[in-house]
């Protein structure tokens, strides 16, 4: 041991074969994210090689436009998964948010009040679930499953029909575009999603709250013995996830310009898949928001590929996502065992 103490630590240099010298110098915790990025570049490459016009800036921009809400959901989910928890309610909260927004706008509420109401409802539900998880020591899976049914049920209480959004402010934001250099256009929801990502990176890496999220995921009992605010963090991540879900719901209502009880069925699973493909461990403590964003982009690219192909059923998306999930979990096991 005296050797290892006196000399700088030797980084485990796994997988130097095949991927070359560069990778061997990268700490193993970045490997899953890099692998996700490689998969993203590869799938995009496949598309560019097969279809004319795939490798355009606008296709890339469309990836963000079509998945802005999922990016926001994945950001919130990353917080929860980093602590070792899970949030199954996000899809239903998205539907509930579209429903609240659409019916409140129909009732003539001003747009700003609708936004605040929706965000408060999502955060409030998250707070309630986090509190129950902490106070009664119930598994997050069960509590958020209950939250999922509750939110979905509340949608139907508001209305069973689809409610379309005719509010001019919402319509302007939904249809407005921002011109980027090179003739590429993006929408406002993309900007909102990217701001959410940047905020999440800041919170996770540069604040005490964020570092405690990682500490709780690494070892909750140690974090408590270190005197960290574990309670606040454990409840806080569900508030963040609830907030992100309702923000994602707002973006989704802009995308669909309607509120409907059956919007976003199963979207929580897409969000979880994106986070896992993005390299986060479900057991907590390991992962990056950027990984989750790239995870969403991978899922989006596969969808785009299939729509370019034209003849393939969209269910192929699910099959490919399933295969990718398995591959990533296997990859993580290998990395964990190497180190």
């Amino acid at each position: 041991m005296s050797n290892s103490v006196m000399s700088p630590p030797a980084k485990p240099s796994g997988s130097s074969r095949g991927l070359g010298q560069v990778v061997s110098k990268v700490p193993s915790r970045f490997l899953p994210v890099i692998a996700t990025f490689v998969v993203f570049v590869a799938t995009f490459g496949v598309g560019s090689a097969r279809y004319e016009g795939f490798a355009s800036g606008q296709v890339m921009a469309n990836l963000f436009i079509d998945n802005a809400f999922l990016i926001v959901l994945a950001v919130g989910m990353t917080f929860v998964i980093l602590t070792g928890g899970i949030d199954l309610s996000v899809g239903s909260v998205v539907a509930l948010s579209t429903m609240i927004a659409a019916s409140a706008l129909q009732a003539g509420w001003p747009a700003w009040l609708v936004v605040i109401t929706v965000l408060a409802a999502g955060s409030g539900l998250g707070l309630a679930m986090g509190w129950v998880i902490h106070r009664f020591g119930v598994q997050p899976f069960i509590v958020t499953l209950a939250g999922m049914f509750l939110a979905r049920g509340l949608c139907f209480v508001i209305s069973v029909e689809s409610v379309s959004i005719k509010n001019p402010t919402f319509r302007d934001v939904a249809t407005g575009t921002i011109e980027l250099p090179g003739g590429v256009t993006i929408t406002y929801p993309v900007v909102i999603a990217l701001v959410a990502v940047i905020a999440a990176v800041y919170v996770l890496h540069l604040t005490r709250f964020g570092r405690t999220v990682y500490a709780v995921g690494g070892s909750e009992s140690s974090a408590r013995l270190m005197g960290l605010a574990t309670t606040r963090v454990k409840i806080g991540v569900y508030v963040i996830s609830g907030f992100c879900s309702s923000l994602g719901g707002l973006l989704f209502s802009l995308y669909m310009l309607s509120g409907y009880s059956l919007h976003a069925v199963g979207m929580e699973l897409d969000a979880i898949a994106a986070v896992v493909v993005g390299g986060s461990l479900l057991s907590g403590g390991v992962g990056f928001v950027i990984g989750s964003v790239v995870g969403v982009l991978v899922l989006g690219t596969i969808q785009t590929l299939i729509s370019f192909e034209g003849t393939l059923s969209s269910w192929w998306t699910k099959i490919v996502i399933g295969a990718l999930l398995l591959a990533f979990i296997a990859l993580q096991r290998i990395i964990v065992r190497r180190t």
Partner: peptide
């Protein structure tokens, strides 16, 4: 050892 092994050495010493 009551530390968080997924964090860096510096964080483990100074967290909180």
């Amino acid at each position: 050892v009551n530390l968080c092994s997924n964090l860096t050495v510096a964080e483990n010493i100074l967290l909180g």
